[in-house]
Simulated assay, not measured.
Amino acid sequence: MADEMWTISRCLDWTRGYLEKKGDERSRYTAELLLTAVTGMSRVELYMNFDRPLDQDELSRMHDAVVRRAKGEPVQYITGSTGFRMIDVLCEPGVLIPRPETEVLVGEVLDYLDSQVLGGASTAARKRAALPWNGELDAASDLERALAESEAGDAVAAGETCEDVATAGEGERAAAPHARVLEVGCGTGCISLSLIHEREGAVTCVATDINPQAVALTERNGRALAVPEDALSVREGDLVAPIAPEEYGTFDVLVSNPPYIPHDVMAELPREVVDFEPGLALEGGADGLMVFRRLLAAAPQMLRPGGLFACELFEESLDEAAELCRGAGMDDVRVVFDLTHRPRIVVARTPL
């Protein structure tokens, strides 16, 4: 590659063809991601600079990246990051890569927090990921904003000054409710960090993981996203072991994407998952519910009355998981489907 001029366009085309022959079903997209990592450009910028030549260092790093991908290594490990809802998180070998299914899990937690903890009146002003299921909320959000503006106008018409209205607003913000979330098995920290980012100033998370590498990566991601120190506490330990006794019963949500692949299914996973991602974060025992059962047993101790227990699980385990929740005395048990319409998440509430 180094003996001739390699432009961005030529490198994209060659990489796409090469990776397609190696079995990459999304070879064009993969080529774009690798080139963005090598050049520091966005995907849009790549297409605006098709004729720009790659320098020797870029060619060398692109060569290494293509070789790694051709051997099956996940793109996220090669580029060192991935997008998740509204944020980018650092990724590295040894820590599970975030999946789109987990974005749905975050959405379920946010819906609960907005309706049951944080109050629905102010949701229109909060950040919301541009995800398929959010489009239908736009009209409602516009209506909420219009009502808020109308209320402010009515207050002024009734004799209150703009300063009075502004002062009242500051008081309401100061007294705004706050949510406390426990994430078990944080990995990259994508769940906790998304909750904090999308409900800025309204959510505090405690995130645990038995893998010290995952704990360190979550902390790095928190710093990269400029998360306030008092908004995120990351702790190393097995499931809820790092939670102090005085914290029991203080959480509004216990959320987890635990190891959930049944033992016999592990061998059927794609090579790039089995050969590169950590088995500790994948295998969930004979039926995929080994860790889930432990979390379910801990949930009543961790959660306040009416608190939410939400877990992502293997698609064929959801019915049994829901029955286990009911058998444990949980209320409002539901199974949630992912973007491919497969059962993926179980949610339940602790009794009031």
Rank of each mutant, 00 (worst) to 15 (best):
Arg235Trp: 04
Glu160His: 13
Val265Thr: 02
Arg326Trp: 05
Leu195Phe: 15
Ile243Cys: 05
Ser81Pro: 06
Cys205Gly: 05
Val336Trp: 00
Val215Tyr: 02
Gly288Trp: 00
Glu25His: 13
Gly327Pro: 09
Val75Ser: 07
Cys11Trp: 12
Met5Lys: 14
Asp287Thr: 00
His341Asp: 15
Thr188Cys: 09
Ala310Asn: 06
Cys186Pro: 09
Ser150Asn: 10
Asp287Cys: 01
Leu137Asn: 13
Ala286Asp: 05
Gly119Ala: 00
Ala157Tyr: 09
Arg126Leu: 13
Leu182Met: 10
Gly187Ser: 06
Ser60Trp: 13
Gly23Ile: 13
His178Asn: 10
Arg304Ser: 14
Asp55Ser: 01
Arg61Met: 15
Met48Pro: 02
Leu295Trp: 05
Gly83Gln: 04
Asn49Arg: 15
Ala348Arg: 01
Ala202His: 07
Ser317Trp: 00
Cys11Thr: 15
Leu195His: 14
Asp287Trp: 03
Gly40Pro: 04
Ala65Asp: 10
Arg342Leu: 15
Leu318Lys: 05
Arg180His: 10
Leu313Trp: 00
Phe276Pro: 06
Gly189Thr: 02
Ile243Ser: 07
Pro132Lys: 02
Val89Asp: 12
Ser194Tyr: 11
Cys325Ile: 03
His63Glu: 09
Glu316Gln: 14
Ala140Glu: 13
Gly201His: 00
Gln56Glu: 14
Thr79Glu: 07
Gly279Trp: 13
Ala124Tyr: 15
